[in-house]
Simulated scan of single mutants.
Amino acid sequence: MKASLLMAAVLLVPAPAVGPPASPAGGWSWPLSPRPAVLRVFDPPARPWLSGHRGVDLEAAYDGAPVISPASGTVGFVGFVVDRPVVTIDHGNGLRSSFEPVESTLRPGDAVAEGSVLGRALPGHCGGTVCIHWGVRRGDEYLNPLAFVMDLRPSILLPPMNPGSGQGGSG
């Protein structure tokens, strides 16, 4: 009975981050409001030249929904890549985020604050659903954008606490 009570007291806590942190968990804001549904997750390729999904697709509330800067920075690019309008923000420390398809009146060099409107979401990336593709890079490495707005560290089990001593262990 005591063992089962102790097992019931096991806590789930975030594990320490592996490797250098990309950003403090939850340090940025979502680029759409209200908090959007994630339609397609980050799925990087095993090798840089292979196909994969180097960002996340976020559902916009409607065609023309405002896309906001998740962190402060400087506009690095506004224009078309292939056939889609793209906005790229340089956040410093080698971090850049990009959004597509987004129509914008900003110009390279414009400063943007966290929460500033970057432009408007356009249809076309997710079929009949209006969405934006959000990518984040540090240098040439693609990072999971959700790590900047959520704590994605895995949970680990800690040993049960011994209620009598306040110490871990099976007592």
Rank of each mutant, 00 (worst) to 15 (best):
M7D: 09
L12C: 09
A15H: 04
A15G: 07
A15T: 07
A17G: 09
V18I: 13
G19L: 03
A25I: 02
S33W: 09
S33A: 10
P34R: 09
R35Q: 09
P36F: 01
A37P: 00
P45T: 12
A46S: 13
R47L: 03
R47P: 06
P48L: 06
G52I: 10
G52L: 04
R54E: 15
G55Q: 12
G55Y: 10
V56R: 07
V56C: 03
D57T: 07
A60Y: 02
G64T: 12
A65S: 10
S69D: 00
S72W: 00
F77N: 02
V78C: 02
F80A: 06
V82M: 12
D83G: 04
V86R: 03
G94Q: 11
E103M: 01
D110P: 11
A111I: 11
A111N: 09
E114V: 14
A121E: 11
A121M: 11
L122K: 15
G124W: 05
G128I: 07
I132F: 05
I132M: 07
R138K: 12
L143C: 04
L143F: 08
N144L: 14
L146G: 09
A147K: 01
M150T: 15
D151K: 02
D151G: 01
R153W: 09
P154M: 00
P159Y: 05
M161D: 12
M161Y: 03
N162M: 03
S165C: 04
Q167W: 06
G168V: 02
